[in-house]
């Protein structure tokens, strides 16, 4: 049964602040081992969608209705206690600015270990898990002892990914994880995510402005505008032959995509 159902299935999701509806998604799915790109202009509701999936939109003051199913389990209306359990253990956030993602006065490892103990209980294995996760993101486990300001943006972003891995998350919600990084580091993070998808069946909801990045990495891309998905198709198809004018505009706004992707 769970094989038939995608890892994440969003249906008729509506997120609103007071009277204003900011997100209205008829349908959006993400399979296991798939990277789904979420594109769209600023204010389109991409981050809010991510927050809703994490169950954090309500805390920000939003009303959430509709259905979000994670591995067959309904998240909308689920008790906070259950959501807390799922957060971290099945899904994890990779934030936009790596610089602010970790508590500045704690070594990054402290956050990792505390989260591991929260979800996996006490035990000596926590440290081992953390270290092996660090290796999986091509980082020296020594880096766990460092403070955020002692790590580069790319390294921090990999620690964030490692955190999700260590916790055994199946779904990473990456909210513009590369926009604060320079191009080479960006490529590195994308390569890492692609490898995790291929080797470990990791699913990623990858939010970005940058269609070039999405085109290179994602299996499918959903284009959002004013809270709705206007086009959601396999990445290559969408880039080569956009159906909506708006998608075309977005594509035109990316200079590097001129001829490169067609080649």
């Amino acid at each position: 049964m769970s094989t038939a159902e995608p890892l994440l299935a969003i249906r008729d999701l509506r997120v609103s602040f007071g009277e204003r509806t900011q997100v209205e998604l008829a349908e959006l799915t993400l399979g296991a081992g798939e990277i789904l790109g979420l594109a769209g202009e600023s204010g389109a509701g991409k981050s809010l969608t991510g927050l809703a999936v994490l169950g954090l939109a309500r805390r920000a003051g939003a009303t959430v209705t509709g259905s979000i199913r994670l591995a067959g389990e309904e998240l909308v209306g689920a008790p906070e206690r259950r959501l807390r359990l799922l957060r971290g253990s099945t899904m994890a956030l990779i934030p936009q600015s790596p610089a602010g993602a970790f508590n500045p006065v704690l070594p990054v490892g402290t956050t990792v270990l505390r989260a591991l103990r929260l979800h996996r209980g006490a035990g000596a294995t926590a440290r081992e898990r953390a270290e092996s996760a660090m290796r999986r993101v091509w980082l020296d486990p020594e880096h766990l002892a460092r403070y955020p300001h002692q790590l580069s943006g790319g390294q921090l972003q990999r620690v964030a990914i490692a955190l999700g891995l260590a916790l055994g998350a199946q779904l990473l919600i990456a909210d513009e994880p590369t926009s604060a990084l320079d191009v080479t580091v960006q490529a590195e993070i994308c390569k890492l995510l692609a490898e995790l998808r291929d080797k470990e069946e990791m699913s990623v909801l990858f939010v970005s402005h940058d269609l070039a990045v999405l085109a290179g990495l994602c299996d499918r891309i959903a284009v959002m505008r004013a809270g709705r998905v206007i086009e959601a198709r396999p990445a290559g198809e969408l880039v080569a032959d956009p159906r909506e004018d708006y998608t075309r505009e977005l594509l035109a706004a990316v200079p590097r995509l001129g001829g490169a992707t067609h080649a």
């Binding site: 954090l56 805390r59 957060r87 994890a92 936009q96 993602a101 989260a115 929260l118």
Partner: peptide, 22 residues
């Protein structure tokens, strides 16, 4: 309002721990 607090929340820590431990 900072990102690392959002991050800790997204890791499933209860609000009490978010405040008291982070």
């Amino acid at each position: 309002g900072e990102t690392h607090i959002q991050m800790v929340r997204s890791l499933g820590f209860a609000e009490r721990a978010v405040l008291g431990r982070f």
